[in-house]
Design a binder for these strands. Structure first.
Lengths: 349, 349
DNA sequence: CGCTCCTTTGGTACCGGTTACATAAACCGG
DNA sequence: CCGGTTTATGTAACCGGTACCAAAGGAGCG
């Protein structure tokens, strides 16, 4: 009746508390492990009285089923991954938030990985891929062939803000139309000489914004700059180019690839006595919180929605959806504030 | 010599690609699984020529060891969890970033969970605890007894910005001294009637700030308000109290529990024609990016360091550190900007 | 030349669950 | 009272690795 002879040589985990397993529960309740397992998953046919005994044993032993054992047997991780470059800045956090929210609702945990220029990023992504049922990858955090490898291993992948890859879904935000809106708005202000700050080779998004920018200028018959002013993504990068901009002669407006650049630039210009929008107009991209307080005209992107969308796409794939890859494009919105100059008629908040 | 008779009735996974296991590799290389396992982990004693054969087989079969199988056998997840309330706002992202960075360096993946008032938060945390080797918990995201339960199960826990719990490490930021600095600075400005915006019952941090605030005022012989102006944590909450503040007669300064409150309040006041700092001074807490652009005087907290610290503490515990729980307190720094009024001598950036 | 000792390798029992299949008990109408 | 279902439970084979223990084959040595 009791658990008598201790036969296994080494017993339990040496450090920490002994973890109680499903077999302990079974013995304690006087049933088989199969029955305990059934009782555990609720659904099945177990006699009420038996279930009661099992529940009592579980309670008494403070048993918690091991996620590992379960996942191994079920051959699913019940977890999704998300890879992004940096997370610093207010931008990525929103994406992760949207992603986590949906994933959690769907009963999946979320594993995050920030590659931040780590040289071992590729391996880390491959490792991560081995721990999840699906993976969302933001921007160009990792080489195409690594993504391909992950896909090839049968792990569903959804790309965010990145050029499409064979066999993977993707979610992006609209860039060309938005750039056109920005340019048109600036033209309406009377601005003509426009510069673009950002590095198109940095990301698909920037490349598209630059293309849209040029296109709109050409369309309007305005002067189209040869090249962008190269810069990274941070406030520092924006600040760094201020001096050169002044030396080369200020344009009417600087369209920046993101808000941080625009804000950094604005501050650096002010330190040289140059006022925005008085002496030069500036626009950004993303509509981060600071943009509101700095009065920066920018383009709002539905970041949270992007994360949520990615999580839902992944869920569908994991659930067996074998249809053609989808490529969603989310719409963006011009947000006009004072950094682009005084506006005669536009709404201003 | 070959793999001949297929005896197992159902073969492989039905959906998706067949996953190749260590036994496939063993058969292919003509060795035992033990040898493959050894070769895999590098370190062991395997004859170079054998290792070569195994590597070839691995390569050829495109074999990737299953993290699940490995974790189950090794009885470790090689993953840490982090639980926080919201992640929205620029604040938590920094914590997560610091945490992830250290955890990744230590070879641990990071699972995130945002509780955001989900009613099922408790279960979710318990579930998460079953998937990790250690857990960081931010603020009062979850009930004390749930944390206790996790600790009781033998999962190391480190609390962040939260009152201590028996058996768990904790990391906090300093609040009382900081509040004192804020008050002293404001007194030096000549401000006397000070109000405090925030809800001390919301978090330990706010409670301590409020206590420090009162203490410093009392110390200086200044008027000590009876109670705080209750509010949440968001810009909206700050905006909501503006009208009441005006109606009740403006104090000299409003010390806010965080930057978002301060910023929301400032904007709402401006809409009523009240200028900061001209008509009333305002200070915040956290030093988020927007605070810089809004010229908000605030207290900077080393959020990234807090995350990093938590990850390191957890690592030590997971590695078997059985010493007394540690309770680290990180120092904070007053950041003076223009929202507290014109400063005769102070440095200003 | 026989006997230790060491290096490599194989066999196999785990880790902690799930589940197909077999079996036993209970129910049911004829 | 009996064969046929239906329901409840047990047995054992997985899932995919790790690691202990034993065995095989040389090498070194008296």
């Amino acid at each position: 009746m009791e658990d008598a002879e201790p036969k296994s040589p080494q017993r339990r985990r040496m450090s920490g508390r002994a973890s109680v397993t499903i077999r302990d529960v079974a013995r304690h309740a006087g049933v088989s492990v199969a029955t305990v397992s059934r009782a555990l998953r609720g659904s099945d046919l177990v006699h009420p009285s038996t279930r009661e005994r099992v529940d009592a044993a579980i309670e008494e032993l403070r048993f918690t089923p091991s996620q590992l054992g379960r996942s191994l047997a079920e051959r699913r991780h019940a977890a999704n991954g998300i890879v992004f470059p940096d997370l610093s800045g207010p931008f990525y956090a929103e994406v992760v938030l949207g992603y986590e929210e949906v994933a959690a609702t769907l009963g999946r945990s979320v594993l995050i990985l920030s590659t931040q220029n780590r040289e071992s990023a590729d391996e880390m992504v491959l490792d991560l891929a081995g721990r999840v049922d699906g993976l969302a990858v933001f921007g160009r955090t990792v080489h195409d062939d690594v993504v391909a490898e992950v896909v090839q291993r049968g792990v569903p992948v959804v790309l965010m803000a990145r050029t499409e890859i064979q066999g993977a879904d993707s979610v992006r935000t609209e860039n060309v139309d938005a750039a056109t809106s920005v340019v048109e708005h600036l033209l309406a202000h009377g601005h003509r000489r426009m510069a673009f700050l950002g590095d198109p080779s940095d990301s698909t998004d920037v490349a598209e914004r630059w293309a849209g920018f040029r296109g709109a200028l050409a369309q309007a018959g305005a002067e189209v700059p040869e090249r962008t002013i190269r810069a990274g993504f941070k406030e520092d990068d924006g600040a760094r180019v201020a001096a050169g901009l002044v030396a080369d002669g200020l344009p009417d407006v600087v369209v920046c690839a993101n808000d941080e650049l625009a804000l950094g630039l604005t501050v650096a210009l002010a330190e040289q006595g140059i006022q925005v929008p008085g002496d030069v107009a500036v626009t950004g991209w993303d509509d981060v919180m600071a943009a509101r307080y700095a009065g920066l005209t920018t383009v709002r992107q539905p970041m949270r929605e992007m994360g949520a969308r990615a999580a839902r796409l992944l869920d569908a794939r994991i659930s067996g959806d074998r249809s053609e890859p989808r490529h969603d494009v989310l719409t963006t919105q011009l947000v006009v504030r004072r950094s682009c100059g005084p506006h005669p008629k536009e709404a201003h908040r």
